[in-house]
Design a protein around this nucleic acid. Sequence first.
DNA 1: CCGAGTGGGTTGGAAATGCCAACTTACTTC
DNA 2: GAAGTAAGTTGGCATTTCCAACCCACTCGG
Lengths: 145, 145
Amino acid sequence: MAARGRECSIAEALEVVGERWSLVALREVMLGERRFNQIAENTGASRDILAARLRKLVDAGVLEKRQYEDHPPRFEYLPTEAARALQPILIGLMQWGDKYVHQGPPPTVYEHDCGEELKLATSCAHCGEPLKPGSTHTVRLGAVR
Amino acid sequence: MAARGRECSIAEALEVVGERWSLVALREVMLGERRFNQIAENTGASRDILAARLRKLVDAGVLEKRQYEDHPPRFEYLPTEAARALQPILIGLMQWGDKYVHQGPPPTVYEHDCGEELKLATSCAHCGEPLKPGSTHTVRLGAVR
DNA sequence: CCGAGTGGGTTGGAAATGCCAACTTACTTC
DNA sequence: GAAGTAAGTTGGCATTTCCAACCCACTCGG
């Protein structure tokens, strides 16, 4: 799809999870819904598109499709490590939506094991300082093809 | 658009920034490109779609469109606070793409002010513990409409 | 003064994608 | 034997996206 433009892992990541319904379907799987019908109902995606997205996520290694019954064949979708690695992004998007888009109190609230309502903080893994706008600069930049 | 499905700020956030090219355009603005032609070239988006996406981001308050020349009228796109708040998500997506999608060395590398290559860590803002899969649970969950 | 170049788009038509409802297959339960 | 459940697939239509070309207003070089 995005054959041209800057060489960039953001664009490549979006090739995999950037289509409509992909991240919302992933949200449901991460919330514990593993069955096609449940994911379809909770996302509101049409079944054909959802089938295509799930197939793509499975092909990309983000979900695992497992048969949990033989007769009749029934399948469930399980998160892989790649899906778990996306969770900070999903929660980040959620909190961004809460703050800049949503009207009213947040529809979904997480609690951390420490007992408090989860609010995400992002920091530099090396020095531990919280990430502030302008505290980074690029040392290498993908070329525009 | 997503009229049905679970009430969820992820879906609402994606209404604003989830369309094709929105996040890639935002990436360019955050990298310092502010002009339509430059954004068009560096993303590879077609000009009509890009114009529509930028308009939408401006309407949503994520970008600011500023006239920097009167005759002829010329505009630039500037990040607002909402755009800066998206930066952890953009960098998170980039690092996810680096790890799970991209082949070869990362095309773009950031350095933090501490002098080391930036790797993002996400943690609980309250207790400071790094976020591990399974260390959270939902205390409230958006209803499915 | 003339033509080329630049910036920021808009327009038209083809191609791709998405939506919805209905259908299918293969069981299980009432 | 009728209805329900699970996991999709199919057909037809509507909406988006893509691409190239065009437009307008100005500036610059000769």
